[in-house]
Nucleic acid binder design. Sequence first.
RNA 1: GGAGAGGUGGCCGAGUGGUCGAAGGCGCAGCACUGGAAAUGCUGUAUAGGGGCAACUCUAUCGAGGGUUCGAAUCCCUCCCUCUCCGCCA
Length: 432
Amino acid sequence: MGPPVLDQRLLRNDPTLITAPLARRGLATDLSGLQQLALEARDLEQQRSELQAEGNRIGRAVGERIRAGAAPGGEEVKELREQGNRIKRQVGELEEQEKGIEAQLMEQLMVLPNLPSPLCPSGRSEADNVEVKRWGTPRLAAEGEELQEHWQIAERLGIVDTERSVRIAQSRFVTLLGQGARLERALISFMLDRHGQRGYTEVLPPVLVNTASLTGSGQLPKFAEESFRCADDDLWLTPTAEVPVTSLHRGEVLAAEQLPLKYAAYSPCFRREAGSYGRDTRGLIRLHQFNKVELYWFVAPEDSEAAHEQLTLDAEAILEALELPYRRIELCTGDLGFSAARTYDLEVWLAGAGTYREISSCSTCGDFQARRASIRCRDGKTTRLLHTLNGSGLAVGRTMAALLEAGQQADGSVRLPAALVPYFGADRIGAG
RNA sequence: GGAGAGGUGGCCGAGUGGUCGAAGGCGCAGCACUGGAAAUGCUGUAUAGGGGCAACUCUAUCGAGGGUUCGAAUCCCUCCCUCUCCGCCA
């Protein structure tokens, strides 16, 4: 019945194998109640299927009698019918109990986050994250120079209109204009082309997704308040292309030879950003709608670790091609996202703000999403859950912010990296 | 949106109440035949869950969910999807 959410065999046999890793996330969970439920569900299923077997035997017996010449409405068959009815009633009762328990089980299991990978460093919060790599030389203000933040630059150049966007939608939306719109488009094309050259299949998915899709990748049921919903339909605005791409293969069994499947999906992303009032209200950093190119891998379980490194390198390659200094941070268990088993965040240097800001988050989800979305791979005779990975490659708005701050010139213009020139059609924005 | 037709295993396709998890074909795998291959023949080929060390076995699944029945792929209801025609539309 129902989709397997967390390995229920594990839950029945040894819940400490679940609670111990969850404790590393800072979650104190007591699964003994759930374990009881799972055992109960198993026992009920056993009872029920035995009864069903008995019912099947009776049904077959009736058929045999009738074929042997018994009257379908006659005495001989009547007794069997009554037995059949009795069993049907009992099965119905058991099924009802089973459904109740199953529902409780699901309700509680679905809100448990993924178990962190053993490789994920322990820690309580952001403060315990580990920097593993730095690339490039951050631009610092020269003597007498004052570096502006991207929203100041953008406003001055007239390439973004925040105020009129409120008229169109509400706050935390932006309208890009002129060279700003063009730069956004150039960046999307640039990223997709680069990833395409590295073996990714380009994807342009639906951005309205159904409840099953959001559940499969882990956004639902727990984070409903984070997504925009279409009230009259079973559809939501996707918060990331990770959602539709996960569901691209939802319910499938993929042949081992097909793996790894590597996708680069561009999509606009929609987030309510509930609970972030007042933070990052200016500029392109925290919007209700933003563009992102997402990298996504479906891999055999034993390949996911190497895939995680490669996916992260692929995201970093974009930053390097754009000459944007960054650092790679490995998240500790306490800072891990809901679906992730292990995560590298990439933080780009924002020269105007004088700080590193997250621009990509590259995670391996192990079999967590595969279990929720039922995605398996076949090797030989057996099938097993595969592993999924995702990472931004990159968040486009934040990339633009970094470029504006990194390339700002004394004359008010912004120099763009050489790699972007063929896409943008010029080597600078503004004056000149 | 209106009218009609349909959704069966990896694919095609039969099956309108009783050993149907489902004929037949294709595909695929193994074996035989061959110098090797093709052709041919034989055998095997769904998924999930439960029990068992295992051989194996039980249950469920013919778009989804309900219902009728001792028994449903087959009958009834609701929903989803696909196709054709009409309407509308970028």
